[in-house]
Amino acid sequence: MDQLQKKHIDTKRGFSYTYYISPAEKADSSKPVLLLCHGWPDNAHMWQWVVPHLLKTKNRIIVPDLLGYGGTSKPTDPKDYEIKGMTDDILEIFETEKIDSQIIPVGHDWGSYFAQRVYLLNKSRTAGLITLNVALMPPRSDAFDLDTFNAYTEKTIGYPAYAYWELFSDPEGPRTVMDPNLESLYYAIHGDSDDWMKAMFCTRGAIRAFVSQGRKDVPLKKYAQDESFKTAFIAEKKDGGMTAPGCWYRAMRENYQLPTEKKLAEQGVKVDQPYLFIGCTGDAVCRTDAIEIPKQAGIVSDVEVRELESGHWCPFEKPEEVGGIVVEWLGKKGFA
């Protein structure tokens, strides 16, 4: 991230955003700008090991701390995390920077959902779409119900894929469970043992019990063994707490996203420009085969699917591979 300039804006909605941007003079303004969107529980620095690979292209890069994270405002009302409002916030960065180039949103985890909606809500501004781990989520016209969703995945794939939402979307969960046990949360997220994510995230009550008990009895992924990496994670979470990041889950579970989702569903929007989806073999929550849902529904057309031998946090675990695949795809599509 040292090669990017750190900046701040205050948006029309009254929130302050921190973002990082590459120099204009090193990019080709005729090429799309890459908008890198992190997910839970990270910040812009999640892309720190991928950015050097992307800087080899002629694309300008913008990497924001999304709402609730890093140096950006951290409201604790889930209404503030309505997706249309948040995407409009980010587009104000482009206005501030006087950038009128096309955009390719790139997202991981919740940042993938965010990137998808940047695309679908602003198709005239976008040239393509890239998502990591989370395949395209078709807009829904009905309310989201966590119990119904978990029952469905339990029936279709054998386990409740969103079991961890019972903690993450609990209004009191961040304050009472996560904040007092940040190191344990770190181990729960970055643990490295057979089927760890399935056991921890897709088993009812598992992650709440692990974190509540302050457990650390699991080996860590290689990148997470770095003491400075862990220290930075814990320091940032101590500074802002986990309540604001949890609002991303609450906004969906409490259906603050429904009006925008319903409108998109009624419009029948599609991803009809080039789409790159990178899945991971070790991700029990965000499965690669989920791409079949939008493919079969005819919502995506020009889609390339790649899969990495990695857990959920592939930008940390396999940054060279992620960067290489993205750069290759950009070149192949004439975007780089």
Rank of each mutant, 00 (worst) to 15 (best):
Q5D: 15
K6R: 14
K12S: 14
S16K: 15
Y17M: 04
I21N: 00
E25T: 12
D28K: 05
K31S: 04
P52L: 05
L55P: 02
I61L: 15
P64A: 09
T72Y: 08
S73W: 07
K74F: 08
T76A: 06
I83P: 01
T87E: 00
I93E: 01
D100E: 14
Q102I: 03
G107S: 06
W110A: 04
A115E: 05
A115Q: 00
L120G: 01
L121Q: 09
N122F: 07
R125C: 01
D147L: 08
F149N: 11
N150K: 05
Y159V: 10
Y159M: 08
P160D: 08
Y164G: 04
W165F: 14
W165N: 02
R175Y: 11
G191N: 04
M197K: 03
I207T: 14
R215N: 04
R215T: 08
K216S: 10
D217F: 07
K221Q: 11
Y223T: 02
A224W: 00
E236F: 07
M242C: 11
A244G: 09
P245Q: 00
A251D: 05
L258C: 11
E261Y: 09
K262D: 13
K263G: 06
K263L: 14
G268H: 12
K270I: 13
V271F: 05
I278V: 08
A284M: 10
V285S: 04
D289Q: 15
I293E: 13
K295E: 14
A297M: 15
I299E: 04
V303G: 09
E304I: 12
E304G: 01
R306Q: 15
E309M: 12
S310A: 15
C314L: 15
F316P: 01
P319T: 09
E320N: 12
G323P: 06
V327D: 10
W329H: 03
L330N: 04
K332H: 13
K332Q: 15
F335V: 05
